[in-house]
Nucleic acid binder design. Structure first.
Lengths: 343, 343
DNA sequence: CTGAAAGCGCTAACAC
DNA sequence: GTGTTAGCGCTTTCAG
């Protein structure tokens, strides 16, 4: 490929001048600039970002690690982050950890190795981004959606606990006394918080603790939602409402219920979590707790850019933790419990 | 950050030796290697990928440009591509063109500038990846899902035309004679092919051409599906089936139909395209044409890696064009047309 | 097997 | 304003 040197040779100018001309430096005669630009175009010159990054110690790229590229919980944020960063002149390197801690650490280190200017990270262990701190203590990191114990990293979170609580409030208002919670993997902060909200809600509305089981699972997938629902139906026949703390879990619940010929919400109320578009055309449309994912993504990008631009006196300052409230959306999947169990 | 030089100094060895030791070069005494590794660990050495890439003229990163980060049509492929590439030691830089040709070209050039080793690209104009060819004629490109007129690029496609045809066959078999097609944006190859399939199907099964309108829209979104459905209901009251050539379009159709109190499939049959998980729990579960997205993503990654590894005598060879067949999945959204219109 | 040196393409001082 | 030069951190000859 043609390089700056080629352009310099072609124009008869010096290397420095050509560089300045092409990068919009003020101290260049307009005419010279034009000449350089013409030559560059002529030769099909493409500047080499790697060389620039190496020299400037700045790559203008940012890493994003999410657990699943197909989950709109993450891709919605990714989409917003990517577009904000693009506007600011940064590229996004998207990686996928598949929720594996090992992969997570590998990715972190690969990003550092490629000298990204910042990292947005959905941690998949409580240790979270600590690994990165060791590799390079200065790269800005913001954790998204889940928090870890890592020190000095910003985080952007949804109010999962309040969400769980609001769901129970809604269900309790409707008259439900026995509610099952299809939860996610036990270690994740999202799971923990949503379950906590659920349990505090149960306590607050004086629901019988034994009547309100929490089922932890291997994932937030539809498959697990389906399995869990079968289990609930078999082992807890007096449950009248299911709170699936993910939308895919709710999908699985719906499948299992349909398969067994149960009608929602007549026989069983179902509530999801988060609000992908399809909840609106599901059978029946699902009541859910919605989180402002776009705003959360926006904030993630904002914090990152902030930390990158600010030299780093702030680094020692307290990390920012921003928590976003959601809202309950009531649709047709929740109703009063069947009379048989009002007792 | 600590560099190779630091490690060299620490061990008392030369730069070259340290480099070889750390990059697994055979000509290094095992003991030396151990010493180097220890020192590297001690100093927290992280090799600089930018410098390596600059020197080797190989970045081990690959660009992916898709129109929408939130659309599972693309993210499913992205997910597969990313994981295959990760296995092969490549990073994926994911960019989003928002279907804007301008952004598309910018992204292409930014990727080239960062010296990616290959590009996977969903083109958003018929010119497609031609821009890249001009900037750097040697970087391997594979186009995904849509084809363009660009020369010398591989492409991985779904059999959209056959899909459209199969849908019509199914509907015609059921007895439908007036079918509306909610299509996507007119310029895209996916739209063109699906519409062609639709129209050939109509011809083949001798459906009245005027009774089978095609509605081109601004996007493949739910919003457009909803608008289009309203239009169909108002302007083509004798239509008994809607073929929405995207799943989100089908979602919109369902919404509009529900809103107007129409029952699916009793009053109107609906068919989607592609098979995201929610089609199974929608009201009613949707008949659709499924494409093997994971395999398509796999093939995309495979072609890319192939081209990258093969020096490039093949470059002049004919580009590979791989087309994947899908299959019709019949669910409960399609049935015989209402008797009033059998006439 | 190891050390020295050249140089990837660029930017940023520093002279002129 | 412009030319020259010194590296950024690494790999890779080429000698030894």
């Amino acid at each position: 490929m043609t390089t700056l040197k080629d352009v310099a040779k072609q124009t008869g100018l010096g290397l420095g001048t050509v560089s300045r001309a092409l990068s919009g430096h003020p101290n260049v005669r307009p005419e010279t600039r034009r000449k350089v630009e013409a030559a560059a175009r002529l030769l099909g010159y493409q500047s080499n970002g790697l060389a620039r990054a190496l020299r400037q110690n700045r790559s203008y790229s940012i890493g994003l690690i999410i657990p699943d590229l197909k989950n709109e919980f993450y891709t919605t944020a990714a989409s917003v982050v990517q577009s904000m960063l693009a506007t600011a002149g940064y590229r996004l390197i998207v990686c996928c950890s598949d929720n594996s801690p090992d992969v997570d650490v590998e990715l972190l280190s690969s990003l550092i190795e490629n000298r990204v200017d910042g990292i947005a990270h959905v941690p998949c262990t409580p240790e979270g981004s600590d690994a990165v701190r060791l590799m390079n203590p200065q790269v800005p990191i913001v954790e998204y959606a889940r928090r870890s114990h890592a020190r000095g990293v910003d985080s952007v979170l949804g109010d999962d606990e309040r969400g769980g609580m609001e769901v129970i409030r809604h269900l309790a208002d409707l008259g439900h006394r026995r509610i099952a919670n299809i939860a996610g993997p036990p270690g994740l902060s999202t799971t923990i918080d949503r379950v906590r909200g659920f349990q505090e809600g149960c306590a607050r509305f004086r629901l019988p603790k034994r009547g309100c089981p929490v089922l932890y699972g291997p994932s937030y997938d539809a498959q697990w939602g389906e399995t869990a629902t079968d289990e609930i139906l078999d082992k807890h026949p007096d449950v009248t409402a299911i709170f699936a703390s993910s939308s895919r879990g709710a999908m699985g619940a719906l499948k299992a219920l349909h398969r067994r010929g149960l009608s929602v919400p007549k026989d069983m109320s179902v509530v999801g979590f988060l609000n992908p578009a399809w909840l609106d055309v599901s059978d029946p449309p699902l009541t859910t707790y919605e989180l402002p994912l776009a705003e959360m993504g926006d904030m993630t990008a904002r914090l990152l850019l902030d930390r990158i631009r600010r030299p780093k006196p702030v680094r020692s300052a307290e990390p920012n933790v921003v928590r976003f409230d959601g809202r309950l959306i009531v649709r047709r999947s929740t109703a009063q419990p069947p009379t048989r169990s009002v007792s």
